[in-house]
Design a protein around this nucleic acid. Structure first.
Length: 160
DNA sequence: GCCAACGTTGGC
DNA sequence: GCCAACGTTGGC
């Protein structure tokens, strides 16, 4: 089974690519996801070694800015149990955690970030979840062809 | 900061 | 189990 490919979104004001790059080991836990579909992708789909496009949302311009990889598979997200945390979920129980997270590690920044506008303008990427109308998923699957195209646009070899 | 689109919640 | 109300997301 070959590795799968994903895209994650983050608001730079919350957690940016630079924050990831500056983190110990250039890795972080991807906590705070509170959407079932996104959770299911993390829990059921993400495996160590999977490729991850790191995208900035709610910024100007929204863009894919770097390549990362999954370095730990899904485990319970502790913020769901912390009443002081904005992502606290009173309905989640410790023996049956509702929310999980994975760890990701930065691999390479794009020499030139690939903006949402550029992605929209590329017909090869018309089916990317990122450009579907009303799409809000913060964790999305990416096809190998989409992966190669985005990397090419950003100036990275497809091996990344 | 606006607001359209979406997901979740809860009364019935 | 419907669906209106509500909260959130995220491009613009």
């Amino acid at each position: 089974m070959s590795r799968r490919l994903w895209l994650v979104k983050s608001e730079p004001s919350e957690f940016s690519w630079a924050d990831l790059w500056a983190s110990p080991g250039r890795r972080t836990c991807w906590d705070g996801v509170r959407n079932y579909q996104a959770r299911n992708f993390m829990r059921d789909g993400m495996r160590v070694g999977d490729g991850v496009l790191f995208a900035h949302s709610r910024t100007d311009p929204p863009a894919v800015v770097g390549v990362a990889e999954v370095c730990r598979e899904a485990y319970p997200d502790p913020t769901q149990f912390d009443p002081a945390d904005p992502h606290f979920d009173a309905k989640s129980e410790r023996d049956a955690p509702r929310w999980v997270m994975v760890d990701i590690r930065a691999r390479e920044a794009f020499p030139s970030p690939v903006s949402l506008t550029e992605i929209r303008a590329n017909s090869k990427l018309a089916r990317m979840a990122l450009v579907q109308r009303g799409q809000r998923l913060s964790v999305q699957p990416v096809t190998p062809a989409q992966w190669r195209e985005v990397l090419r646009m950003g100036g990275l070899d497809a091996h990344a």
